[in-house]
Every structure is written in structure tokens, then in C-alpha cells.
């Protein structure tokens, strides 16, 4: 379906790319301006580069703390999801036992459940087990709610590959864990990296549960932390913009590193819709 003369296509695509990316580039550029510059001439390049915006925002905004908290939440949640869901998916896809289907369908049902819907009982549960205000509360919620999609994706993927390698490994006397570790894991790497990336972004960008569970300033994640930062410095865009840049850079960097593989997996139907 190649265009013979793709000039018009390229023009439209480039304009669309500018619409998608200009605001993000602009925020970075503006974050180096002083306040009058931001307000009076939003379209010009900075005339002088105010790196001190960053040092001030960094020291006044608790940003390091928020970043560390968010990193702990996202990384732990992703590791738990990847590890637990791949173990479970291996058993569901390859072991025939009573209850297999019921368990698989229980996981699948979670795909239809918007997690916010059970926010109230989750909040009450967290209160009962004393985890309100603890990063672990949000980690557990993201880990549990990420399982459905991940199990679904991995079961489908494992079922689609032939059993030959596993059977050969069994003949060589490998244990089930060795088969999981040395055969299954390398095999499902593309799907695993897709779920890892999606779950990382969900956890890093998550807003609702940190909002209701992590209200202690020492335990806030970036999404909520920036909100309280804005509360204090509402019109000081010269401090707010560097904070926004610092908050969005990690996700963009992680995505940039994983993007080629991710786009290829998505359009190759790694995620069956």
C-alpha cells in the first residue's frame, strides 16, 4: 500500500508530530526562562538560561523524595507482576488440572473491572491492615491489578509456542523451575517486556490511589507531590515548570529505551485485540 509520491503524507505526519511533541519540548525550553519571560513571551526561546530554576525547584519541592518514592512503587510493582504472572501463566498454559479454567477466568474477569470501582473497600482494607500512608499499599494495588492483563497476555503467548523445547528439557532431567527459568522466560521475553513497560507507566503515572492513600508528605509519589507543590507555588511557573520536566523525564527516558521493541510488539499483535 505504499504511496508513490508520499510528500503530502509526510507533510501531514510531520505537522501531527509537531502537535504531539511541541508542548513537551516547549515545557523544557520554558523551564529555563525567568517568570516575566514565561508570562510575557511564551513563544520565544529563552534569552538567558536560568538553571537556578531547577536548583530552587529541586531544593524547595522535595522532588528527590517524590522521585525515590515513585521509583520504589513502580519498580517493585513491575517486578512482582512480571515474576508472579509469568509463573502463573506457565502453569495455566501448560498444566492440565482441575480448576485450571476457573482460575484463568477469574484472572480474566479482572480485565473488565475498573480498579477505581473498588477504591472504597481497598481503602478500608488498607486501613484494617495498617498500610494507609505506606508505599506498600499502592504497590500491592498496582501489582494485583496488573496481574489480569499480564496473565492473559502471557498465557496466550505460551500457548502459541510449541512444547518441543520443554519436552526436550524434561528428558534431560530438568525440574519444572529450571524449565520455567531457562526455557519459558527467554521465550516470552517480548511479551514480558511489553507488560513490564505498560505496568511501569501505569504505576509511575498513577494518580488516584496515591491521592487517597499517600497523603503524608513524606510518602507522596510525584503525581500527588507535584499537586501539593502547585498548591504552594501556584503562579510561580518558573519553579513549577522545572518540577514538571523532572517528573516527566523518567517516563520518557524509559519509553525511549524500550520504544522500538514495544512498537514492534504492539503492531505485530503481541497484544491481541
Amino acid at each position: 500500500m505504499q504511496f508513490k509520491r508520499p510528500v503530502v503524507a509526510y507533510v501531514i505526519l510531520i505537522i501531527a508530530a509537531l502537535v504531539a511533541l511541541y508542548p513537551l519540548v516547549d515545557v523544557v525550553l520554558m523551564s529555563f526562562k525567568d517568570l516575566p519571560g514565561i508570562v510575557s513571551s511564551p513563544f520565544s526561546l529563552p534569552t538567558s538560561w536560568h538553571f537556578d530554576n531547577y536548583t530552587t525547584a529541586w531544593s524547595q519541592g522535595n522532588l528527590l523524595l517524590y522521585l525515590v518514592n515513585t521509583a520504589i512503587v513502580s519498580v517493585v510493582a513491575v517486578v512482582v507482576i512480571v515474576f508472579f504472572s509469568s509463573l502463573a501463566a506457565y502453569v495455566i498454559a501448560r498444566f492440565d488440572f482441575r480448576g485450571n479454567q476457573v482460575i484463568y477466568l477469574t484472572f480474566l474477569a479482572g480485565l473488565a473491572l475498573p480498579i477505581q470501582m473498588i477504591a472504597v473497600p481497598l481503602f478500608i482494607l488498607m486501613k484494617q491492615i495498617g498500610l494507609v500512608g505506606n508505599l506498600l499499599s499502592v504497590i500491592l494495588i498496582y501489582a494485583a491489578s496488573g496481574l489480569s492483563f499480564s496473565v492473559f497476555l502471557l498465557v496466550n503467548f505460551i500457548r502459541s509456542v510449541p512444547k518441543d523445547l520443554e519436552e526436550a528439557a524434561t528428558l534431560d532431567g530438568a525440574s519444572y523451575f529450571q524449565i520455567y527459568w531457562h526455557v519459558i522466560l527467554p521465550l516470552i521475553r517480548p511479551s514480558l517486556s511489553t507488560t513490564a513497560l505498560l505496568n511501569f507507566l501505569t504505576a509511575w503515572n498513577g494518580f488516584f490511589f496515591p491521592l487517597i492513600l499517600l497523603t503524608n508528605p513524606n510518602r507522596m509519589t510525584v503525581a500527588v507531590g507535584v499537586l501539593s507543590f502547585v498548591g504552594q507555588y501556584s503562579t510561580q511557573w518558573n519553579l513549577l515548570l522545572p518540577a514538571l520536566v523532572i517528573v516527566m523525564l523518567p517516563t520518557i527516558i524509559v519509553f525511549a529505551l524500550a520504544s522500538r521493541q514495544f512498537i514492534r510488539n504492539m503492531t505485530a499483535g503481541a497484544v491481541k485485540m
Binding site: L21, L24, F207, L244, M248, F255, I263
Partner: peptide
Amino acid sequence: FQVFYFIPMVVPPVV
């Protein structure tokens, strides 16, 4: 282009 168009999706909603 696909990567470019996807980037706004990874930016935190607060930003």
C-alpha cells in the same frame, strides 16, 4: 512517527 505519537501517552497526567 509511531514512537513520536506515543510519547504524550507516557507523560504523567499531572504534567
